[in-house]
Design a protein around this nucleic acid. Sequence first.
RNA 1: GCGGGUGUAGCUUAGUGGUAAAGCUCCAGCCUUCCAAGCUGGCUAUGAGGGUUCGAUUCCCUUCACCCGCUCCA
Length: 544
Amino acid sequence: MSQNTNTAAPKHMPKDMKEIVALCKRRGFIFPASDIYGGINGFWDFGPLGTELKNNIRDLWWKAMVKCPPIGPDGNPVRIVGLDSAIIQNPKVWVASGHVGGFSDPMRKCPGCGKFTRADHLWDTLLNDSEWGTSLLQEIQEQGKINTDIILKWAKSKGKKLAPNLAVVKNPEVTLSWLATRINGQPESPPSMIEILQHLATAQLNSTGLQDPCPRCGAPLEGESTFNLLMKTYLGVSASEDDKAYLRGETAQGIFVNYKNIVDSSRVRVPFGIAQVGKAFRNEVNPRNFIFRSREFEQMEMEWFCHPDEADMWFDFWMEERRKWWLSIGVGSDDIIFRKHEADELVFYSKKTFDVEYRFPFTAPGFGELEGIAYRTDYDLTQHQTHSGTKLEYMDPMDNTKRYLPHVIEPAAGLTRGVLAVLCEAFTVDPNRPSGMYMNFHPNVAPIKAAILPLTEKDGQPEIAQKLYMDLRQDYMVDLDIKQNIGKRYARQDEIGTPFCFTIDTETSSDNSVTVRHRNTMKQERIALDKVKSYLQENLSKFD
RNA sequence: GCGGGUGUAGCUUAGUGGUAAAGCUCCAGCCUUCCAAGCUGGCUAUGAGGGUUCGAUUCCCUUCACCCGCUCCA
């Protein structure tokens, strides 16, 4: 990006998300969904330019995956086939995949401090990560046995500070009397640490039963509330609970449930991939940050089926391929990282996962996920084999005695997030030009590849422009703009990131030459009118 | 889901319990011009609903959307 270095904008000048959102609306990239009705939280519409941009990114992904997949380690191109599965599948698919039961985290709210705690991590958190929990535990362990005096002492000193809302702190005598009753009542089975903590959170045992304390402040937690992220709908006109179905939470499951169909119909052999681009839906608890977390979004997912012994090799292979791809659409530099998931962050079925993350203006200096590359083992195929009762084993064509469930490497990218990253990356402040900024799109994703601008509306210039336009539009998305002064038109093209402007002037009719105006440098050069198309062809792949 | 903030035209900002103002953008025309030029004209707004009031953009309530911080993001 050498041209970036001589503009006035420093490379890491923080970009203002508000300006990017405003530009997107003003120029027709992205609008709030249902805008004239006041919008709807978590949904966005793509305008004319946003649609072009998104389609370009999608097509480049499809090309890199399906039409022209990379060369594998053995020197031959790998094989990936495409799929476009239904958004709604048999609800059993989502039971098998674990989304119906597990695509949610049971949360418990604390009435004292207002924080949520994951119900399934509560005791682990209390015993290991809670300030007051570990402090109390330490006191007890030093004594080697449970002693209400020690707890009382703790409650009146450290506990006051660390767990102000804990029952034993607020009301020590009553609370401890219940615990003493319990310890003395059943000397043969002393209470566990968990039960002790519950007692310390309980002042009114008879009316409330044992309470669970908040790891932060000690107040008794409220019951579980689960957020299931799957969006529901009802099939048929009667809309009873029996007709309940789900909008897909990811495109991947459509691939897994078609795995057998594709193996049986497409002459593919392991290792091979199945790719799909499409909408997915999640009831995000809190949609935020423009199109970054929305309830309807688009994914580009590829499931790579391989022998378990080769999975690690393919994992590394796809990591590298994905890095190259993001770079190829102009998302690169220091603002993209590959981050390995720590063991406690991994979902249970994944052996390893890397996130491709981009430094969005709203995450900076941190990063936000663009793509997850996950080693999913044979989890999904196993689940679907079990739930559907259909054998999904792959039979080695060379050795019919070898049968196995392939393992899966999944590079799953967010198309919607990719669009956002490209928009953020392209947004370049430049006080030295009339528009004050320009969109530095890689030409291969730019919504409009070139604008054709007659300098004036007279002298036959519009006619020449029209002719050029009719020719170029056969192959490229181009814009013909005749009205208004040339400066305004250049400024408009800068704002929508058009890499080239071809300007027809008085010389054109005499010597058949036009001006090429470069977006990033604003420099101009003169080329022959009949060379415009080949000029575009040569320069659209360049990004410097 | 919680707390805080914001909401007047496409954008930036005025203003008022009594006909809502301007600049830029945009559109049309003139000019014929290589970086938002000039002249003339034009379109477009009080987020939504309810209440108080003779009358509400203004006061009150509710709601929606957006922003920030938590929370969440199998």
